[in-house]
Amino acid sequence: MTHFPTSVPLGTPAPASPVNRPAVEFRAVTKRYGAFTAVTDVSFSIETGTLVTLLGPSGCGKTTTLRMIAGLEQTSIGSILIGGEDVTTRSAAERDVSMVFQSYALFPHMSVLDNVAYGLVVGGMAKRQAEEAARAKLELVGLAGLEKRLPSELSGGQQQRVAVARAIVLEPRVLLFDEPLSNLDAKMRRRVREDIRQLQQSLKLTVVYVTHDQEEALAVSDRIIVMAGGKIAQDGSPRDLYERPASRFIADFIGDANIVPALLEARDGGLGRFKVGAASLILPHRDVAEGPVELAVRPHAIQLAAVGEGSGGVPGRILYAAYLGDHMEYEVAVTLGGREITLFACTLDVDTPRVIGDAVSVGFVPQSVTVIPA
């Protein structure tokens, strides 16, 4: 695996000033296609040198938002600023951005070197100078020595790196990625996302990255903007979104989560005592009122014990069991809030697996349980 040069992780960006403006800014942007509204009143800013991911399910508006940054779509209402300059009505060629497409969009009849140098040559740079710049970027992405090959002679991961080199050789103010890993297998996706993150940090690139893959977003991002129904559902760091989801949708969408009914019995300072069936948990109450609430319980927060071994647990029954090498996955039926629900659980105990039909006592690790705000 090729690793790009590393750097010290980026710190908190300084406040915007005349010489340190947000790299990208959306001001109350709406995009309509006839009677259909794809993006509704979206506002955000992206600081220079950060990687921000637009995340969400299909049809949420994330790709439309990216295409508006690129100038491939025009806003219906609102303004877009890049480097503090209003580019709302400018064409794609006038915005100083480069885009890495899902399909890579490499010229099949051109060599790797010619593909990377193409934008510079079209922009008026002398061919020899453009090729020198292209060679430098190919070396940066770990493709030195492959300059004469055609795209068809490269693996999917190598083609992706060519597309990245072609984008960064233009030295854009903002680099855009549209579902860049969707054509790669699982192992290659992990490798290439590490490469992209290391490249972004080492060169302090400003990157806007679109994906529907939650794990991918958590792995590469300084910040994640989750979209749903054309609006921003939550905007924050990967840890904020995973550990402090702002809604039921976010809790269910960011990583696997079991949505469990509970009762907040009492509050004391920032903590509350929650009742989940027979189990009692002390958790940050996140300002919810006493009474019925919902908790987001991560699969690894569920502890399974034989009946009689776990005191104060919730009675359950194994519905499904799967061995995945380094862990077991289970579906467990429990009765909570007067109805039967199914919990998804993961455990590292692969030596003494439970089988379908086993009666178990279900407990919860408080550190991986969070309250869902009303």
Rank of each mutant, 00 (worst) to 15 (best):
A167M: 05
Y104V: 02
L106A: 13
R95H: 01
V19R: 13
E147H: 07
L51G: 11
A251S: 08
E153D: 11
G255M: 03
A279L: 11
L241E: 09
V192T: 13
L181V: 06
V29G: 04
I254G: 08
V288M: 05
A165D: 07
L72P: 01
P5S: 11
S182D: 10
V141S: 06
L150I: 13
V355M: 14
F253T: 07
S247V: 03
V276R: 00
L176V: 03
L184S: 11
D213R: 15
G236I: 05
P245T: 02
E216F: 04
V365R: 10
T370Q: 14
Y104F: 09
G269V: 01
H109E: 04
R223E: 06
R189N: 08
T40G: 12
G272R: 02
D268M: 12
L218I: 03
Y118T: 13
N115S: 08
I225G: 10
L120E: 05
E153M: 09
D185F: 02
M99E: 06
A262E: 02
Y242A: 03
P353G: 09
A279I: 11
F44W: 00
L150W: 07
T37S: 03
D287H: 13
R273T: 12
A322D: 10
L51M: 13
L55T: 01
H212T: 12
P18E: 04
T89H: 08
A233P: 11
A117S: 02
T12M: 12
Y118R: 15
L324D: 10
G316A: 05
A14C: 07
N183C: 13
I259V: 07
D114P: 03
K275G: 05
A301T: 04
D351Q: 13
H3L: 13
A92K: 02
L283C: 03
I196G: 15
F249N: 09
Y320P: 07
A228E: 13
H285Q: 05
D41Y: 10
P292A: 12
E340H: 00
R298C: 06
T6C: 14
A228P: 15
A167V: 03
V332C: 01
P108A: 12
G11K: 03
V29T: 02
Q158M: 15
S43R: 03
E47Y: 11
L218F: 01
V112S: 10
S221G: 14
G34W: 02
